[in-house]
């Protein structure tokens, strides 16, 4: 085999070995984002072709899965082009306010310790339904943080935004998910209707600076 072809074959083996363990992660994320198995397969294949073409640009020592997910997220945004509009609704002035303590104690207890498998299954189904109601951006946040367990820094790189934005978007996404779940849970009678204690957001920076001036 000529030298050039040996080199191609070696790169290919390396790439396959690195990618294969992440195929399920890519497919799951693609499926949750596109909501269609056919689109998800196309998106994953497109992602891997791009990743292969730009494989030499991957920085060794960084998180390969995060790198793949970044390529996939870009491909998803390019292909569907809905993200820009939705982001505005999600982050911008039109964004619905999210309270801090959206649940009462009894609701939390009901959801934290479901009684029996049946109720556990109902809650799982309701979370799944609530998840489907989230925007593309919010779903991406929950998937990257809670399912793929990426760090905030990695998520910031995947999405292409500052870490502070990841923090606030992720918080918002989780609260939206929780309040949607609570809504369903109340309707199903899993938990009682409860009074919300809606609080103002509290800044961690303010806390740190208050502490800093103390003697």
């Amino acid at each position: 085999m000529p030298k050039k072809e040996r080199k191609i074959a070696a790169t290919r083996r390396l790439f396959e070995g690195e990618v294969r363990p992440h195929l399920d992660a890519l497919y799951s994320t693609a499926l949750r984002l596109t909501r269609s198995p056919v689109d998800a397969e196309d998106l994953v294949q497109d992602t891997l072709v791009r990743a292969y073409r730009f494989y030499d640009r991957f920085e060794a020592g960084t998180n390969f899965k995060a790198w793949l997910l970044r390529i996939q997220m870009n491909a998803f945004v390019n292909r569907y082009r809905r993200a820009a509009r939705e982001r505005q609704v999600f982050d911008g002035p039109m964004a619905a306010p999210v309270g801090e303590g959206v649940m009462s104690r009894s609701t939390m207890r009901g959801l934290t310790d479901p009684v029996g498998d049946a109720q556990r299954q109902i809650i799982a189904r309701e979370i799944s339904r609530a998840f489907e109601e989230l925007s593309d951006d919010a779903r991406a946040m929950v998937l990257l943080a809670d399912v793929e367990e990426l760090s905030y820094k990695e998520i910031a790189e995947v999405i292409g935004c500052p870490i502070g934005t990841v923090m606030s978007r992720l918080h918002r996404a989780r609260k939206q998910l929780q309040s949607s779940l609570r809504h369903h849970a109340v309707q199903l009678g899993i938990v009682d209707t409860d009074e919300d204690e809606v609080d103002d957001p509290v800044s961690l920076e303010a806390f740190r600076s208050r502490k800093a001036v103390k003697p």
Partner: peptide, 11 residues
């Protein structure tokens, strides 16, 4: 619970 509900599916 979130991880279980919307977690990984096999490709």
């Amino acid at each position: 619970q979130t991880r279980d509900s919307v977690g990984r599916v096999q490709a």
